[in-house]
């Protein structure tokens, strides 16, 4: 079941088209990667979902219901350009942001305490934000995003500026929230985190959605039939079903080659042929990374 659907969403600005007929469907309780280079239209789409701006055409539904002001409390949004009130105390600030999302103060106080304990920030509750380190401030921003326990979390470049320790901490929290029932929309142009986190992805480039689906399906569809083989011996005499792309010597008597299989050849076909020729030490299918796919498509789109 899809918790959020965008159907044919279009948004024009005076000088350019920010979104052109974009449709995406986000399954409930998934981690959804919204990918694309800078300026592709990701933030515009997110702002439309957050009702900060309105689309010119198309519609968005949340839990099957047309987007309306009631949905504001169903969404937790961590924008790419984010900050806090520098002169305000951490506790007061979280309380304010929680109340703006409609949380009663008693409940908010309890949750703020729990979250601060969980992320080891309890003794900072009475401190002003300007006294916090950057990492701590980012944890506070994350808490502010999730305090009202939204069904949908929208995180725009959540790890930018995080050190690896904090990034992992937040990653774990994201997984935990997903397991508890939240759906996470994760917007980024950094592919390594997509690889780890996302179940589904959509790729937006130049205002248009050019690709979407589950991460697994997309990767499979971009397999190009390449295999890396470590072996002893020589590959001379391979049938013309295969091309050897390049070979390098790894050790004294060990070589590594990348082999391109013609269409319709299964891994077993290759293995059979290889075994008859050489001593196979390892055999791995080359699966494209999301990064490769991303670059491939974006660059391809340019030409």
């Amino acid at each position: 079941m899809n918790i959020l659907e965008a159907n044919n969403v279009t948004k024009n600005y005076a000088a350019h088209k920010a979104l052109d007929d974009v449709s995406i469907a986000i399954p409930k309780q998934s981690i959804f990667g919204l990918l694309g280079p800078n300026g592709a239209g990701k933030t515009t789409l997110i702002r439309i979902i957050n009702q900060i701006i309105m689309s010119d055409a198309g519609e968005i539904t949340i839990k099957g219901e047309k987007l309306n002001p009631k949905h504001i409390k169903d969404i937790g949004y961590l924008p790419e350009e984010r900050g806090l009130y520098k002169k305000m105390k951490v506790g007061e600030q979280l309380m304010y942001l929680a109340q703006l999302k409609g949380l009663p103060s008693g409940e908010a106080r309890k949750r703020i305490k729990n979250w601060l304990d969980k992320l080891g920030l309890t003794e900072w509750s009475g401190k002003k934000v300007e006294d916090l380190s950057k990492g701590m401030a980012q944890k506070i921003q994350f808490i502010a995003t999730v305090l009202h326990e939204p069904d949908i979390l929208i995180l725009d470049e959540p790890f930018s500026g995080f050190d690896p320790v904090n990034a992992n901490l937040i990653k774990d929290e994201i997984f935990e929230l997903r397991d508890k029932g939240a759906t996470v929309i994760f917007s980024t142009h950094r592919m390594e985190s997509v690889e780890q986190l996302c179940d589904d992805i959509a790729l937006i480039n130049k205002s248009e959605k050019i690709l979407d689906g589950t991460k697994k399906d997309i990767k499979n569809s971009f397999k190009s039939g390449k295999y890396v083989v470590n072996y002893k011996g020589s590959l001379n005499g391979l049938s013309n079903n295969f091309d050897v792309l390049d070979t390098a010597s790894v050790d004294d008597d060990l070589s590594e080659s990348t082999v391109q299989a013609k269409e319709g050849q299964s891994p077993n076909d290759i293995l059979k042929e290889l075994i008859s020729l050489i001593e196979v030490h390892s055999f791995v299918e080359v699966v494209p990374s999301i990064n490769d796919i991303f670059i491939d498509i974006v660059e391809g789109g340019k030409s």
Binding site: N50, Q51, I52, I72, K73, I75, Y77, L78, P79, E81, R82, G83, L84, Y85, K86, L97, L100, K101, Q141, A144, T145
Partner: peptide
């Protein structure tokens, strides 16, 4: 201006109309 330069404003307007 403070809300704008501290970049809190986008968080706020996701809960409150401008």
């Amino acid at each position: 201006l403070d809300e704008k330069t501290s970049r809190i404003v986008e968080v706020i307007v996701s809960s409150v109309r401008p």
